[in-house]
Design a protein around this nucleic acid. Structure first.
Length: 826
RNA sequence: GGGCGAGUGGUGGAAUGGCAGACACGCUGGCUUCAGGUGCCAGUGCGCGCAAGCGUGUGGGGGUUCAAAUCCCCCCUCGCCCACCA
C-alpha cells in the first residue's frame, strides 16, 4: 500500500525526535583522527531567518551531515551574534526592550533552524549578549591592554552622523557607513584601538597556511592589509627641530626629488609656518580642505590644491634645497604624512608640479629612446630604465636600483629599508548602548585604570535612556552605573561609557563553542586544542575584510598568549554567494522577499534545502526566479515525491535467494555503483547541484527498469538503500523516514556512507570518437582498455570514416585512450 | 586609474584541451482525467530538410593546436575589490 508523502508530519516528527534525543551533541574530547569541526558564521538575530540564511544553512548542514556519515565525530555548533545596532534601533523606534527583542528573534531563528533540519549541537549555544559570554570579551580586553595591544588615543575617527557612533575603517565603504549608507564624517575623538598593525606581516604571510581558501578571498585580504616595500628617508627641514621621515617605494628616484609635501593636518605644519607671515593663508587653506567630504578629498578627478610654506627641505642625497608645500593629495593617515615629490616619475607629483610651476627633473632613462626632458614631458615616466643625474648611481638599472640605493642610504645613515601597510589599527570603541561595556575606569588621580578581573563582568545597565546623541554615549545616562570607586584609591571615578565593536565578540566565539559553560576562563585551551583548527568554515564573502581579518588577528594573539596552537583558525573556508531576487537584496520595502516559512508550509524543508542546493554551485550568487517559493513546487518537490514513490513501491522487496542477474540488472547495478563513486566526489568538492543531477539520473533509470518489467529484489533493494544514503545529507527528513520504513531502528544519519565496487563502477564500454581534420565524423561503442593500435583499427572500420578519408592515408594520427582517435589528411 | 572574476539555449546550470548544452525548469505534442491540477511518455540550441542528414553554434575579433566554452593577445559588457597608498 503506497502512502502519500506527508512531509509536514514527517518533518515535525523527526525534528522533535532529533532534538529530544540530542542526536547531534558532540563530545568534549573526540578521537583526534575522526574529529570534524564544521561551523557556519553565526547569524545576527534581526527578525526571522531569511533565504540567505537558508542557503548557507542548507549548504553547511549538508557538509556536516556528509562528514558524520563519512565516519567523523562531528562538532556542529550554532549561536547568535546578539549585540549590535538593530536591537537598539528597534528599542528606540518602537520602545521595545533590546534584550527582549533580541531573545524573541533568537527563538524564532532557532525554531526555523530546527524546522530546516539543521544538525546543530543545541547543548553548546553561544549568545554574545549574555553576560556569561561578554564577560570574556572584557577579560580579553584586559589581557590585550596588559600586552600593549589595547590602547587609547585621540585621532580623527570615522563618525556616522545617523548611527551616532564611530566606525572602524573596515566599516566604511566608499566613504559611507557600511550599515546605513550615510556619508561618514571625520571627528577628533579619544578612542580605544586594538593594535592589529603589529600583526600585519603575520596576517599576510600566514595566509599561505589557508590552503582551503579561494583566491578571491586571499586577494581581498592582501589588498586590505596592503603591504608595500621601500625605504624611509630622513629630510632636514628649515624651521623644524627634528628631521622629518618620509616613506617611499622608489628611493632610487631620490635625485629627482624637487619639492617636499606635507599633509595639511600634519602637526609639524604650525611649527613650520610660525614666523613666515603665512599663518592667515594656512588657516584659509585648511578651512577649504576641511569643507570637502572624504569622497571629494580623495577623488583623483579633482585638481590638486596646495600651498607653499615658505620653507625649504634639504635633499639628503645631494644637499639641494627643495621648497616645502602642503597639499591635499598627501594624506595624514598613510605612510608618515609627508612625501618627497618626484614629478618626473610620479603622476600625482607631476600634475602638482605642472599646476604650481615646480621643477620636473628626470632621473630615469627609458630602455629605448632618449632621456625625457622635464620641460616637454606630458606625463610622468613610471617604467623601468637606467638611472641618470643620480650621482654615484648613474648607469644603474631600475631592476636593482631600489635595493642598491637603500643599502647606500643605510650606510650613510640617512635612511633604511622599510615596509608600509595600508591597514590601520582596529578602532573598537562604539558610542552605542547594546554592546560589551569597555572595562576601564578613569580616575582623576590615577588616570585610566583597568577593572580588576574579580569585578568582571561589567554588566550592561538596563532601563536607561539609550537615545544616542552627538555629545555622549547612551551609557553616560546611567549615572549610578558610571560612577564607581577607583580600583586603586577608592575615590569616585567614572567608567568608560563606550561599548565594544561587535566584531570583538565574533573574533573568538569559535573557541567558546568548544567549552561553552566554562565560568573560570573564556575556554580551556586543552578542550579547544582537541577540536581546532576548524575543519570547515562556511560564510559570506562580505566578511572578507571584517570578521575574517579580526578573527585571524585575535587567533594570533591567542597563540602568543599560549591559549591556542594554530596560527590560522580557519584553513578551509567556503564562501557562498548572496541570495537576491530580481538582482536586488531581498527587503520588505522592495517587496521581493521569499519567505522560508511559506516554503516549509507548502513544500517542506527537504524540498527547500534541495532547491537551494540544486540551483547552482555554492559559491555562485543565487537569484530567486520571479515565481518565488512556487519554483520549489516545480523543481525539487515533485522529484522528492518521485523518490518517495520509488521507495514505497519497493519497500517490500527482500533478499531472496541467489543473485541471478540478467543484463538489465547488471546495467542497473553498474549505474548504482558509478553513482556512488561520482556523487561521493561531488560531495567532497561541494558540487551538490551535480550530485543531485546524478541522483535524478539514477532514479530515472530505476523507473525505466521497472517499466520494462524489471523487479529484481536485491538490485532494487540496493538501489533504494543507496539513493537514500546518498541523498540523506541533503534531504535528511525523507531519507530518515524511509530508512525507518525499511525496518531500521537507528538513524540513517548514523550509518556509514556507501562504498562502491570499482569493477562495477567502471564503464564496460566507452564511446570511441573519431575525428578527421578536427571534426567529429563518427562515434562507436568499444570495450574499455583497448590499445592505441586497436583503437585505430576500430576507427578505420567505420564506413563514415572511410568516406571522409577518401582513400588517402592519414598524414598524422593522434590517439587519446580510452576513446579518441583523430586523423589528419592532406 | 590599478587589480580580480564572469559572459554558454527561453531560464537555472553542466562540461577546465577531446561528442557543447548533463540534470532540471519552461515550452510543444501525446496518454491518464468529466475538467483543472498531479502523474506518465515523447520532442525541444539555431538554419535547411518529411526524414536520414548537412551546416552552424559558448559576448566580438584574431592566434596557438590534429582538436578550444576551456590556453594566449586585443576589444565590448557586467560584477566585485582597491584607489591622490607616496
Amino acid at each position: 500500500m503506497t502512502r502519500e508523502y506527508d512531509f509536514k508530519s514527517i518533518e515535525t516528527r523527526w525534528k522533535d525526535h532529533w532534538i529530544s534525543t540530542r542526536a547531534y551533541s558532540a563530545p568534549d574530547f573526540p578521537d583526534p583522527d575522526k574529529k570534524a569541526y564544521t561551523l557556519t558564521m553565526y547569524p545576527y538575530p534581526s527578525g526571522d531567518l531569511h533565504m540567505g540564511h537558508v542557503e548557507i544553512f542548507s549548504i553547511h548542514d549538508t557538509i556536516a551531515r556528509f562528514a558524520r556519515m563519512g565516519g567523523h565525530q562531528v562538532l556542529n555548533p550554532i549561536g547568535w551574534d546578539a549585540f549590535g545596532l538593530p536591537a537598539e534601533n528597534a528599542a528606540i523606534q518602537r520602545g521595545i526592550d533590546p534584550k527582549k527583542w533580541t531573545y524573541d528573534n533568537i527563538a524564532m531563528h532557532r525554531a526555523s533552524m530546527e524546522q530546516l533540519g539543521c544538525s546543530f549541537d543545541w547543548d553548546r549555544v553561544v549568545i554574545t549578549c549574555d553576560p556569561d559570554y561578554y564577560k570574556w570579551n572584557q577579560w580579553f580586553f584586559l589581557r590585550f591592554y596588559e600586552r600593549g595591544l589595547a590602547y587609547r588615543k585621540a585621532a580623527p575617527a570615522n563618525w556616522c552622523p545617523k548611527d551616532k557612533t564611530v566606525l572602524a575603517n573596515e566599516q566604511v565603504v566608499d566613504g559611507r557607513c557600511e550599515r546605513c549608507g550615510t556619508l561618514v564624517e571625520k571627528r577628533n575623538l579619544t578612542q580605544w584601538f586594538f593594535k592589529i598593525t603589529d600583526y600585519a606581516d603575520r596576517l599576510l604571510d600566514d595566509m599561505a597556511l589557508n590552503t582551503g581558501w579561494n583566491d578571491r578571498l586571499r586577494m581581498l585580504q592582501r589588498n586590505w592589509i596592503g603591504r608595500s616595500h621601500g625605504a624611509e628617508v630622513e629630510f632636514e627641514l628649515e624651521g623644524a627641530k627634528y628631521p622629518v621621515t618620509i616613506f617611499t617605494t622608489r628611493p632610487d628616484t631620490l635625485w629627482g626629488a624637487t619639492f617636499f609635501v606635507i599633509a595639511p593636518e600634519h602637526p609639524l605644519v604650525d611649527e613650520l609656518v610660525r614666523g613666515t607671515g603665512r599663518e592667515q593663508e594656512l588657516a584659509e587653506f585648511r578651512r577649504e580642505v576641511d569643507s570637502l567630504t572624504e569622497i571629494d578629498r580623495t577623488s583623483t578627478e579633482r585638481a590638486k590644491k596646495g600651498m607653499f610654506l615658505g620653507r625649504s627641505a634639504i635633499n639628503p642625497v645631494n644637499g639641494e634645497n627643495m621648497p616645502v608645500w602642503i597639499a591635499d593629495y598627501v594624506l595624514m593617515d598613510y605612510g608618515t604624512g609627508a612625501i618627497m615629490a618626484v614629478p618626473a616619475h610620479d603622476q600625482r607629483d607631476f600634475e602638482f608640479a605642472r599646476s604650481h610651476d615646480l621643477e620636473i627633473r628626470p632621473v630615469i632613462r627609458p630602455p629605448q629612446g632618449t632621456e625625457p626632458d622635464g620641460a616637454s614631458m606630458t606625463e610622468a615616466y613610471v617604467g623601468p630604465g637606467t638611472l641618470v643625474n643620480s650621482g654615484p648611481f648613474d648607469g644603474t638599472s631600475t631592476e636593482s636600483s631600489v635595493e642598491e640605493v637603500t643599502r647606500w642610504l643605510e650606510s650613510e645613515g640617512r635612511g633604511r629599508a622599510a615596509k608600509n601597510f595600508r591597514i590601520r589599527d582596529w578602532l573598537i570603541s562604539r558610542q552605542r548602548y547594546w554592546g560589551t561595556p569597555i572595562p576601564m575606569i578613569y580616575c582623576e588621580d590615577h588616570g585610566e585604570v583597568p577593572v580588576p578581573d574579580a569585578d568582571l563582568p561589567v554588566v550592561l545597565p538596563e532601563d536607561i535612556d539609550f537615545t544616542p546623541s552627538d555629545e555622549a554615549s547612551p551609557l553616560a545616562n546611567a549615572h549610578e552605573w558610571v560612577t564607581v570607586p577607583c580600583p586603586v584609591c577608592g575615590k569616585p571615578a567614572r567608567r568608560d561609557t563606550d561599548t565594544m565593536d561587535t566584531f570583538v565578540d565574533s573574533s573568538w566565539y569559535y573557541h567558546r563553542y568548544l567549552d561553552p559553560h566554562n565560568d573560570e576562563m573564556p575556554f580551556d585551551p586543552e578542550k579547544s586544542a582537541r577540536w581546532m583548527p576548524m575543519d570547515q568554515y562556511t560564510g559570506g564573502i562580505e566578511h572578507a575584510v571584517l570578521h575574517l581579518i579580526y578573527a585571524r588577528f585575535v587567533q594570533k594573539v591567542l597563540v602568543d598568549m599560549g591559549m591556542a596552537k594554530d596560527p590560522e583558525p580557519f584553513p578551509n573556508l567556503l564562501n557562498h554567494g548572496i541570495v537576491t531576487m530580481g538582482g536586488k537584496r531581498m527587503s520588505k520595502s522592495r517587496g521581493n522577499i521569499v519567505e522560508p516559512l511559506e516554503a516549509f508550509d507548502l513544500y517542506g524543508a527537504d524540498a527547500l534545502r534541495l532547491y537551494m542546493l540544486f540551483s547552482g554551485p555554492p559559491e555562485a550568487p543565487f537569484d530567486w526566479p520571479a515565481e518565488g517559493v512556487a519554483a520549489i513546487g516545480n523543481v525539487t518537490a515533485p522529484w522528492l515525491q518521485r523518490v518517495w514513490r520509488l521507495c514505497e513501491e519497493n519497500r517490500d522487496v527482500v533478499h531472496v535467494g541467489e543473485l541471478n542477474q540478467g543484463p538489465a540488472e547488471h546495467a542497473l547495478r553498474k549505474h548504482i555503483h558509478r553513482t556512488v563513486k561520482i556523487v561521493t566526489d561531488d560531495y567532497r568538492s561541494f558540487s551538490f547541484n551535480t550530485a543531485i543531477a546524478r541522483l535524478m539520473e539514477l532514479v530515472n533509470q530505476a523507473y525505466r527498469y521497472k517499466k520494462v518489467g524489471g523487479n529484481h529484489p536485491e538490485v532494487m533493494s540496493e538501489l533504494v538503500v543507496t539513493v537514500l544514503k546518498l541523498l540523506a545529507p541533503m534531504a535528511p527528513y525523507l531519507t530518515e523516514e524511509q530508512w525507518h520504513r525499511l525496518g531500521h531502528e537507528s538513524s540513517i544519519h548514523e550509518t556509514p556512507w556507501p562504498d562502491f565496487d570499482p569493477s562495477l563502477a567502471a564503464l564496460d564500454e566507452v564511446t570511441l570518437v573519431v575525428q578527421i581534420n578536427g571534426k567529429v565524423r563518427d562515434t562507436m561503442q568499444v570495450p574499455p582498455g583497448l590499445t592505441e593500435e586497436e583503437l585505430v583499427t576500430r576507427a578505420l572500420v567505420s564506413e563514415k570514416v572511410q568516406k571522409y578519408l577518401d582513400g588517402k592515408d592519414p598524414s598524422k594520427t593522434i590517439v587519446r585512450p580510452p576513446g579518441l582517435v583523430s586523423f589528419v589528411v592532406g
